[in-house]
Design a protein around this nucleic acid. Sequence first.
RNA 1: GCCGAUGUGGCGAAAUGGCAGACGCAACGGACUUAAAAUCCGUUGGGCUUUAAACGGCCCGUGCCGGUUCGAGUCCGGCCAUCGGCACCA
Length: 855
Amino acid sequence: MSSERRKPYPFDQIEPKWQKIWDERQSFHALNPGEESFDSKKPKFYVLDMFPYPSGAGLHVGHPEGYTATDIIARYKRMRGFNVLHPMGWDAFGLPAEQYAIKSGQHPAITTRENVAKFKSQLKRIGFSYDWQREINTTDPGYYKWTQWIFLKIYNSWFNPKTNKTEPISTYLGKNPDEVRLAYVADVPVNWCPELGTVLANEEVIDGKSEVGGFPVVRRPMRQWMLRITAFAERLIDELEGLDWPEGIKSLQRNWIGRSEGAEIDFKIDNHDAQIRVFTTRPDTLYGATYMVLAPEHSLVDRIVTEEQWPAVREYRERTARKSDLERTELAKDKTGVFTGAYAINPANEEKIPIWIADYVLLGYGTGAIQAVPAHDERDLEFARKFDLPIRQVVQPPGDEDPTGFVGDGIAINSPIIDGLPSRDAIRKIASWLEERELGKRAINYKLRDWLFSRQRYWGEPFPIIWEESQPNAQHRKHNALDEKELPVVPPPLEDYKPTGTGEPPLAKAKDWVRYSDKATRELNVMPQWAGSCWYYLRFCDPRNDKRFVGEAAEQYWASGDCPGTVDLYVGGTEHAVLHLLYARFWHKVLFDLGYLSKPEPFQRLVNQGIILGEDGQKMSKSRGNIVNPDDVIEQYGADAFRCYEMFMGPLEQMKPWSMRGVEGVFRFLARVWRLIMTENQAGEWQLSSALQDVDPTKAQNKVLHATIKKVTEDIESLSFNTAISQMMIFVNAFIPRSGTETLPTSAMRTFLILLNPFAPHLSSDLWATLKSEGDITGQTWPSYDEKFLAEDEVEIVIQVNGKVRDRLMTSISATEEEIKAAAQTNPKVAELIAGKTVRKVIIVPKKLVNIVAQ
RNA sequence: GCCGAUGUGGCGAAAUGGCAGACGCAACGGACUUAAAAUCCGUUGGGCUUUAAACGGCCCGUGCCGGUUCGAGUCCGGCCAUCGGCACCA
């Protein structure tokens, strides 16, 4: 008949069968407060995956790594009596669908629908226990209506520094609320990517290239929507404290936000009534400031440059403006700059110091101006040496180090006000001195920039904003928010999705749509891809609510518990460390401050799964031809083997290479589980093994069983899935009958199947049913172990002499230290080794070892 | 340069300061088979040594150097390497 090898166990039949049953019974649907048979006494557990962008390529093996981990937790927690929220959805706005639309003319909504269908069927084939009734899609008007609604909340809010909180814009008493809105329009130099025809956020630019596609990015001033995330810088750092996140991710965020403490100091400009404010972390080096530098784009430059210096300054500014970010960093080694002809007065000693412009000073950081202290700053030193500017030491290093170029803490010198003080004290004293004279003040600065929130693309959420035309000057038109009743703002149909290339958004082509009324037109930009993922975890709590972005009772229930975060466990890749994870925290805090949420943070515990490499140990890529397709693996070994292998490979968070041989090993383990319970009869049909009996487990069997319950339980709790599987392998190896007369206690097998269920749900469900067990395995209670079965009568004790293992000894569990000591010393090998020596000390570790120290 | 992670057999890995290498892969040997596959059993860190053979015995071994300790893969100090992030941030 068929030449195809018979499968060691019929996963190809049982897997689709159980997937269908779970679907029909809606086995994994989580109930919300208010729903019939909702049990308010059950504690909740919210376990979430980073939802995928449904690309045309389908799932790769990296996706199911995290998804399997969370699925194991979800199934385990259900068996432990939790009401588990374990949802899945689609982050479907974004560039690839739009790029495809440009090429094919097919509407992105169609591509998205097809890709979602593919992803969904692939996920179902792996047997994940998602509550599919809660499926969401960021491109669904019923979803992005609320993304737009949240934008309106942000637009209509401001950050009150007095309360350190977001407040409705109505509480702002200043003249122009547009100056403080959390969403505002600004004409700023932005990252413009000509290839993609759009601007990008700082976070989306890597080494001067776009994160998507790797195209060059240039600086260009444009009028754009910004979100005032910088107002939250302090809270975004401080509130990381209460979160259970990997230290690496926390420090990545702290680093990105980049808090530094120092002072702002005002320098008068000679012969002008203007002054230059600088930010420095080392006000104690003020006496060492021998020149100043302004960023080339600094607004004061126009006012202070002397006539003879103008040509050089103009030429330098033009050259800098043309440089892309990439060029600016690549040329970083070589300092460039031009003298403005103007001088500033050092407030500490009234000295006249020259003012330069140079591109190593960035407009975007601090005040865009610095006091240059070449003796104690590497960059200033390099610049001073190149342009022959004076270098004055003001910090004495503690050792005999060269003071020139010393950037650490030492003792202040050549600084009358603070001479002799250690740097830290000197900083404090000079800061007070400046404050008393109103020459400066203590200040904190952040690297974090406001979030550039608009994109010149088609496939994104339109802004719920219109522009009034009453103003004659287009530059001064006024923006207004639409009323929430007008949401969702649906993008217009377009024939041509191509970016215009000029920076004008493609939505401009839809003339009818753009025209909002006789007096107003619509905002043409769309939101960036991150918008939808900033709050999707909230929508999962109540995904079909059309009155509110999330119902109050639902939000309160799924956010309950006494930690600061809403989601209990969040698993995904590190690539979102500073993008999604920072943006989502920001939005969450805005909504929290406004009273819509019960917790200040979105994600309590974060775990990053490691990257899966190809069999060759290299990153998987098309060009290397080392991509593993999950569909192929499932076809050959089944979903359970696929799941178990992904977990058995090694620790979840570690990077690790794929191995088809490894999959086979895990597959063999599952086949052994099957054959433990099933045997093949003469006709080649599977039937219940006759070894299974309703008998009590033997002492040895009970010991292995309870050790397995203990280990698997503890390992799931600590996400050590690889060692949990090892222990289940040990269980199977111990229970395989070695002779025809051995029996298998059915009760022990049932318990084992429950332990296996989160890992291999199909196989365990099927064998559970075959054993004619009561109910569905997914509804069972997680077993607990009994210490009494783990206890032994006798233990092996290791005998060491001077720390080296020399022999082993069986002792009764109740043996006293004296007995053990005596037994060890009379041991013939020990006696031989310590002959002629003095026993100095005997260390006894109960039930483990005895160490005899002899000399 | 700064921050973070990692370094253990041929490979993936395991080990509350207490027998390094559990579990799996690969390899080798064997059983079953006409044969192969599948399955099952056994061996498997390196070196030296006893012996007819076997059992056994000894030494070395967790990136490198040092320290703490009766005892270190694990703790401390200093290096090296790899990976990831940030990087003219004043």
